[in-house]
Write a protein that binds this DNA or RNA. Sequence first.
DNA 1: GCCCCTTAGTGTCAAAGAGCAACTAAGTGA
DNA 2: TCACTTAGTTGCTCTTTGACACTAAGGGGC
Lengths: 232, 232
Amino acid sequence: MTENPSPRLFPIVNADVALFTLDDALRLRVLLIQRANRPDPGGWALPGGLLKPDRDDSLEAAARRVLADKTRVELPYLEQVATFSGPHRDPRGWSVSTLFYALLPADQVPAVAGSKTESIAWVDPEAPGRALGFDHGLMLPRALATLRAKVRDGALPLHLLPSHFTLTELQKASEAILGRPLDKAAFRRQLKSSGDLAAVPDLFVRGAQRPAQVYERAAGYRFGDGHVRNDT
Amino acid sequence: MTENPSPRLFPIVNADVALFTLDDALRLRVLLIQRANRPDPGGWALPGGLLKPDRDDSLEAAARRVLADKTRVELPYLEQVATFSGPHRDPRGWSVSTLFYALLPADQVPAVAGSKTESIAWVDPEAPGRALGFDHGLMLPRALATLRAKVRDGALPLHLLPSHFTLTELQKASEAILGRPLDKAAFRRQLKSSGDLAAVPDLFVRGAQRPAQVYERAAGYRFGDGHVRNDT
DNA sequence: GCCCCTTAGTGTCAAAGAGCAACTAAGTGA
DNA sequence: TCACTTAGTTGCTCTTTGACACTAAGGGGC
């Protein structure tokens, strides 16, 4: 990799991603990677990497590429959180790092794998249980707060679920993000009146109890209405 | 100014600012600058400039410096909006630009002046009346939306007002940001119960009507609770 | 000095919404 | 057939929000 020819004049630019998903027990988890390369080899951090102007069309594209490189996962939902900057946050010099959060459907978790040299871990975003490198210890709470604000404002975390799901699953996903229980009746009332979901006719999940109606996203609904725009 | 030695590998990094204030009629206005330098001399744009790693400690500091250079105004309230990026948004090459919005107290507007070579304009952020350079035509609505979301969530735009103000002035400021009228009774109820403001004893604004109580920020209140962090 | 005009500030009521609890519905498995 | 579990609904209360009418207190015209 080429060294920055004049680190004093041109900061390092990279993209970091907080990739959220749900574990088997429908608890919120975030992906950490044990770094193989300089700086800080062996340290845990959010997946991230340098922007490559010759390959990336935007910071968002860079985030997507980094994620695909490190985890073999394509296309999760991605949204910008904030940009961190400063002369000392990266030991290589003055750096700028744009943080994204991403949502991965729970049924795609097994597809995430480390590389030969890097191992991965899914951890509780509120208690990662390890010190994170760079300023990622500040980034993670920010990413979580951004996601929470969105769900608190009524957005549905459909990107954490398969394309078909039950209302109870959706409620559990929302609760996992918000970190507090929600009222079943109120939750369903809101969904009904919003019209964001559509019941899939005659499709039910069966168990040792009353079958649960399966739903899917209604025609026009998007989690990310407030878009992250780049370039023209 | 030094040329970027390898624009293909190291993007241009800069900071842009949407500086909001209120005009005499308490309407929301944003500052535009007519550029003197390359690229796009003579074009109108949000004030902005290149990050200087040898002088700036963060992107926010860069935004503050740029604003001070171009307008002779120090210390307005500053908050990060988003980062825009792409190979073509700046004709000089692959660029990254972090957008901030800033709030300037209405009584400091006269302090803003153009330089010998650059003129300024205060315009309606919803109808700037000119085409903006780069992708600033996308940035401005984003900055306004971020500010609006904050006020809609109950934040008080105290940074648009002098340190002492009446409740009517505060209501007008909120209305200017939101772009819609608010109910006087409801507005005041909220303020009372929040405890964010304190009446200044025996201080009133007099006019050809009942005197208006003067208020100030209560001890612990901050507009920017959700902070923009940088470096460690 | 009195009245009118203007803006400051409060009280009342209805509609809407959030939280809580109890209830019914429909399947499995003993 | 019955107990158990989860799905889904109904009804209530309490709080919040918006609309609107009202009172309060000054200045200026006459």
